[in-house]
Each structure stands twice: as C-alpha cells, then as structure tokens.
Nucleic acid binder design. Structure first.
Lengths: 260, 260
DNA sequence: AGAATAATGTTGCCACTGCAACATAAATGT
DNA sequence: ACATTTATGTTGCAGTGGCAACATTATTCT
C-alpha cells in the first residue's frame, strides 16, 4: 500500500522538469533526500517510457505538450521515423501547399521541412508540428481550429474537418497506428476523421509509417489501401500486405539507412 | 571576409538541436572536426543569447516553440503571476464559457482552472493554455484557427479574429505587455488584434497583469482603460494610473500573498 | 511471521566534463 | 607588412557522472 513513494517522486521529477526544462541529478537527489543512484534509476525508467530525455548528468522534458499517447512504445523506432520524415520532406517542392497530420512521424517530417528552408505553406492540426515549422520564417503555417485533443497534441472534431474541407492542397502527409490489407488504421476516431479529410483534399496523399505498424489493426479503418497513393516507410512490406499494396497501385518509397 | 565559420557552425548546431532536442559536446566536435573546447565556447555564447540551454556535457533547445517573447523578464515575477492566475480562476463559475488569451499569466490561470475542476468551456488561441486545460476532461476546449505565431506560442491573424467573432462568451481573460493612462499596450500587433476581438465578444472582460507592467508602453494600444472592466493584479496601481483606473470605473482585484 | 521481492544506499573504479592557462593560427585594421 | 585582435587547439587537473557489485532496508505475498 505504501508503494507510492517511487511513483510520487517520479511525478514530482516530471513537474520539476516542466518548470526548469533541464535539471541535474544531484539537485534532484538533494531535494528528495535520496541517493543519486536512486535518481539515476528513476530517470532511466522514465526515459524508457519516453517521459523524459536523458542527458549526461541529468534530463530534459521530452517534448513540450506531446503527451504519452504518442510515445507509447515509440522509443525504439526513432531512428526509423527520423529517416522516414527526412525522405518525406524531400517530396515537398518550393511553393507547394501541404497538410500535415498530428503524429510522431509527421513531426519528424516537420522538423526536416523547417531545416530544408523551402518556401511552402502548411496546414496542420498539431501544435508540435506548427512549433517545429515555426522556427523557419519562410514557412507559412495555418493551424486548424477544433476541440483540443490531448492524445494528439492538437485539435480534432467537426470544426477541424470543416476547416480542412475549405482547402485544396498539393500534398497531405498523414500517419496511422496500423496498416493492413483493409487499409490504414487509427485508434482515435476523431483523429481518423481528420486524416480522412486531409486525404480527400490533397492532390497527392502520402502515408508515413514505420515497419512496426505493418499488419497491425486498430479501432477504426481510416481508408482503403487504394486511397493511399504513396507510402513512405523504412522496410519493404512483406507477404500479403506487399502484394495488396501493389494491386492497389500504392507507390512505396523506402527510407533506408543510406538515404540520410 | 572568412569570418563566417563560427557563425555558420553555431547555426548548424542550432539546426542539429532542433532535430534531436538534446546533444552532447563530443558528437558536435566530431561532426564539425573541431576541438571539444571550441564547441564548449560556442555553446557558452549561444546560451548567453538564450538560443540554447546548457546541460552538463551538452545542450538542449531552449523551450520548444516558446520563443523569447514569453521568457524575456518573466523569471522574476513568477510568484506574482501565479497568484494572479489563481485569483482570476476563482471568478469562473460552473458552466461559464470563457476566452483565454496567450501569455504567461493567462497560462497560470489555465493551470489553476484545470485543477479547480469546474465544468467550463474555454476558447483559446494558445497551445500551452489548451494543453494545461487538457489535463481535465471536464473542460471543453476550443482552439482558434489562424497563422502560427511563434512569439505567442499560438495562433493570430484574421482567421483567428473571425473565429472569435463567431462566439459570445461570459468572460475573457487577456494579458498585455503594458498598462498606462492610454490603456493596455501590446508589442505584437497581430496578438493585439486577437485581444481586442476577445474583449469585444465577452460579457465581462478582465485584464491580468503584474505590477511590473504598470506605466509601461508598447508598440500598440489594445484598448482604452474603460474597455477593461476588471483588472487582476498583485499591487494597487499607484498615482495617476490608479486615479485613471478609478475614473474609468475599472474594478481592481488584488492578488495579495495571502490569497493563495 | 517468514520468505521472496523490490527499492534504495554504498563503495570503488573509470570515463567524461569543465576550466584555466598557455600555445598556435587566422583574420583584421592601419 | 606589422601589430593587434580573435578564434581555435592543447594540456593537465580537479570535479562529476556512469556503472556494476554488493549491502541494506522496505514492501508484498502467502
């Protein structure tokens, strides 16, 4: 019953971090009156859950406003997603107008796009994407209205969909929580509706996905395979999924390690 | 003429950081083929300019998305703003609909409101406010559309103003960068327009301000004193400003230390 | 209560960081 | 071209963090 000490300490570490962004181990150790080793072990755990980001001698908040929904067990695929985002960014030509969905992979895309420094216009429903792009003044960023969705770190709902429907864009980048023969899957129904809207309004729809999502189902089917004209991923989809994608004429773009 | 090396290196360090959030000195040293000491000196400079945040052995980006606008001289008044936010939250009755502006003081209000656990509906143009409120599922949060504004950590522009104009709410909480006899001042013109719109659409407009902003001018006057029917602050406005507020029939609410 | 398990503390060793002092190289101004 | 300033590299040392092994204390389960 008294097993609350560790959890509470970790919660308070998180709170501390939100206030000061970066913190060092001895400080924490002193303020909780525990040994530095205990703190080290705490940080290790929290880093594994994606709650924080370890640094040498301390930790930093692992992305403002990006709630655990994203991070679930994402920490293993960061390199893959990074590559996928980098490759996807290469498709965006100067003066294009694109939509970017909420998600960890699409966030990587946004970061790359900001560095690439092309003059583009972006419509997004995700705060983190907007903030990442915001570092580059040459990118015009329109954020959708809607109901705040903590899971997504952005907005969803009818207001969002209606807003998206007012546009017609060159390209849409969306993520998903799974990809099967039926199509793209998504756990959050409100988010699925936004993805669908973005796909519908784009000349060239593109799905960004790491291979861990292959053959994984989820609550809702966003769209059939044939609506995804392009797929950017890090491995060739194998077996049935691969043939189904070919039959649906989905172009597969591979972000292999060398593409970096 | 060749004095570009250092600047360019620092720019690229910043770009690297935006991609990976946290980075260590030896990595940077190797990728630029310079000594670790050079990198160390670079980071020191950049930290002084507030571009990055130093950690032991490396650096992290200095607050994702929240640009210097907020941080400027904020670190001194945190306690005051915290109290102001707490007092302001008490005005919100159950089932009210309120608007909350972007700003560090209004963010404190949002945090308090989330803890207070009343059933309310909020319209805001600020990501951080939305995320703070998002921890409480009983609060319905509508986020405005608009152009992403890195200074504000939210949206501004005509889309934002038009969206706000569709509503009519019980209360609006806004911040400002200064308060003088002429009224409330604001440095960011686009943000000022949003504040004006919120004030116009609210039954009860309220300005949240710490005493450091008294008698401080800024680029644009948001509105005359008489439009601010309520002022929540931490000290009694002195001299001319005090009498002018009285003449304009602005009700002043004091968040003194005991109110906590 | 007693055994099993989990959490925390302690210690020692090694690798890494920070810093200062000094050396060297590059860029700049006159 | 020369002196001056600025940027960078080098070295040594003191402080700090990481890690692993082991000891100790709480907590949980039966």
């Amino acid at each position: 019953m008294k097993r609350a000490k560790k959890q509470e300490r970790q919660d308070r570490i998180l709170a501390e971090l939100r206030l000061s962004a970066a913190i060092r181990i001895p400080e924490l150790a002193e303020s909780f009156r525990v040994s530095t080793e205990t703190i080290r072990r705490d940080l290790e755990e929290m880093a594994e859950d994606g709650l924080i980001l370890r640094t040498y001698g301390g930790a930093v908040v692992s992305q403002l406003g990006v709630e655990p929904g994203w991070m679930e067990r994402d920490n293993l695929m960061v390199a893959e997603r990074e590559r996928i985002g980098a490759l996807a960014a290469q498709f965006v030509r100067p003066r294009e107008i694109v939509m970017i969905d909420a998600g960890s992979t699409t966030l990587h895309l946004a970061r790359r796009l900001a560095v690439a420094d092309r003059e583009v216009t972006v419509v997004t429903n995700c705060y983190a994407v907007a903030m990442a792009l915001g570092t580059n003044p040459r990118i015009a960023i329109h954020v959708c209205p809607g109901r705040h969705d903590p899971q997504e770190g952005g907005v969803t709902g009818t207001e969002t969909v209606e807003f998206i429907n007012r546009f017609h864009v060159d390209r849409a980048f969306i993520g998903a929580s799974g990809l099967t023969l039926e199509g793209a899957h998504e756990a959050n129904a409100a988010a699925a509706a936004v993805k669908r809207a973005m796909l519908r309004r784009a000349e060239t729809p593109m799905l960004l996905l790491d291979h861990g999502k292959f053959d994984r189902k989820s609550f809702e089917v966003v769209c059939p395979l044939k609506d995804l004209r392009h797929l950017v991923c890090d491995r060739v989809p194998n077996g049935d999924l691969g043939t189904a994608l070919a039959r649906a004429k989905v172009q597969v773009h591979l972000a292999s390690a060398v593409t970096l």
